[in-house]
Nucleic acid binder design. Sequence first.
DNA 1: TTTT
DNA 2: TTTT
Lengths: 149, 149, 149, 149
Amino acid sequence: MSSVNKVILVGHLGKDPELRYLEGNISVASFPLATSETFNRDGKRVEQTEWHTVVMWRGLADVAAKYLTKGRLVYIEGRLRTRSYEDREGIRRFATEIVAESFNLLGRRSDFENNANSPVASDKKAQAQAQEQQVDFTENNDEDDGLPF
Amino acid sequence: MSSVNKVILVGHLGKDPELRYLEGNISVASFPLATSETFNRDGKRVEQTEWHTVVMWRGLADVAAKYLTKGRLVYIEGRLRTRSYEDREGIRRFATEIVAESFNLLGRRSDFENNANSPVASDKKAQAQAQEQQVDFTENNDEDDGLPF
Amino acid sequence: MSSVNKVILVGHLGKDPELRYLEGNISVASFPLATSETFNRDGKRVEQTEWHTVVMWRGLADVAAKYLTKGRLVYIEGRLRTRSYEDREGIRRFATEIVAESFNLLGRRSDFENNANSPVASDKKAQAQAQEQQVDFTENNDEDDGLPF
Amino acid sequence: MSSVNKVILVGHLGKDPELRYLEGNISVASFPLATSETFNRDGKRVEQTEWHTVVMWRGLADVAAKYLTKGRLVYIEGRLRTRSYEDREGIRRFATEIVAESFNLLGRRSDFENNANSPVASDKKAQAQAQEQQVDFTENNDEDDGLPF
DNA sequence: TTTT
DNA sequence: TTTT
């Protein structure tokens, strides 16, 4: 195999995640994420924003729909995937997305606790690096042997 | 700012890099890179290949054109950038590329030393993590104080 | 070469950075950084904190001393380095440190603007991914051609 | 939580992995990994090697013991962990290790197929990014729905 | 269009 | 103790 496809982003959500359900009741969440960098143009600082389409699947999508909201700062780890599709005029187009494998909420609690779909009691759990695996893991933790690794 | 946009790829070049020159004699190299992953579908191992467009600028482009060839395994670090452009029919399209900031040749020398544009004498230099910065750095290393950091 | 040594941390500073000067007036900053993860032990959520020693050199050290303070959340990219030294009893010891190559302040402005050594006017500059290279770069930007890459 | 602790290494094994078993029959593999970088000192290219202690647990340890051998080039992703222990003279010491979460074999098959504990039939499986999760996953893949994500 |  |  010999291959690695990894993306690491820290940025702000441009919108609340949109949650859909595929056949088999598989959940999919997606949202735009902004990262920005500043550079010099003719001696002036210019900020350039890059917009990424982030997609999450299954348990991770559910957690995202619950805790991620427009404006929040988030750390995302995932991989690149380019989809091919036909638009409404029948033109073949390509869209590159970041398929997230885990995410972490960043910033202080106070930054987001007055939010509409604010996390309450089980917030800690979600913040604890809401990984696809970990989400599964915490749901059936019979196998947990208490070792921190 | 508070933002991170980072891509890490290990994959094989699908073609030799294509080197172009912009106004101001700025060099730009680009090439397709394949990463692949295997997964189960109906009990069978299926391989799925993802193709990435990698772009390099200036000194890094020159080093890439010299040392990277079709088929080579390479580690690439960069950032995502989505360009908007009009295709030949005047349709607005978007293309997401990985703008590389550094690369490392992987695999043994013997894997590629019979290659057409094989690296010779100054190979070490290029292999020594051909970073944009380092390339500049080694060109005017007056400031080098010999400390390993 | 064929080698990569990369560390990515997001965590909180345990103390203000300590700034020292080596011969040749080279600045070195260092500070402890905490990352934490939660795991299940006997059905209870336990948090485990990992402490890292982060070291920065030259321009990056100066920026760190100016903008990083105890408690701040920061994204750090760097590499691992294990130093060998003799402690006060003459015992040979090893210390593994993260030599930072860049950092980003995370969290909102309001989180830290009442801070003692608060950033003021040139804050943007520091927040704009305070990379060793970029710090040098913004100091002599004659070569800047205004292109965002 | 708001925390990330990630290490990415590409380097060569200094020794074959050493496999031990803890109580509960939990397997642990560990080995030294070398990364190296070159820099200028007084106009000469100097290579400096950094040695890392890599530790793997459970299924990942078993896969490592089977496929990783001295000299092999490998991509490793994991996290930093500093252990405290007493050496034989009763002196408290600290050791920082990389607890691997996944690894990928790099380089061509021919580089290692004459090796002593050479992978044979099930090689593909191991090479397919031998992640802790994936290893578990491929062992009980009843839940696999054939979607590539 | 790469590689195993 | 690896590799180029």
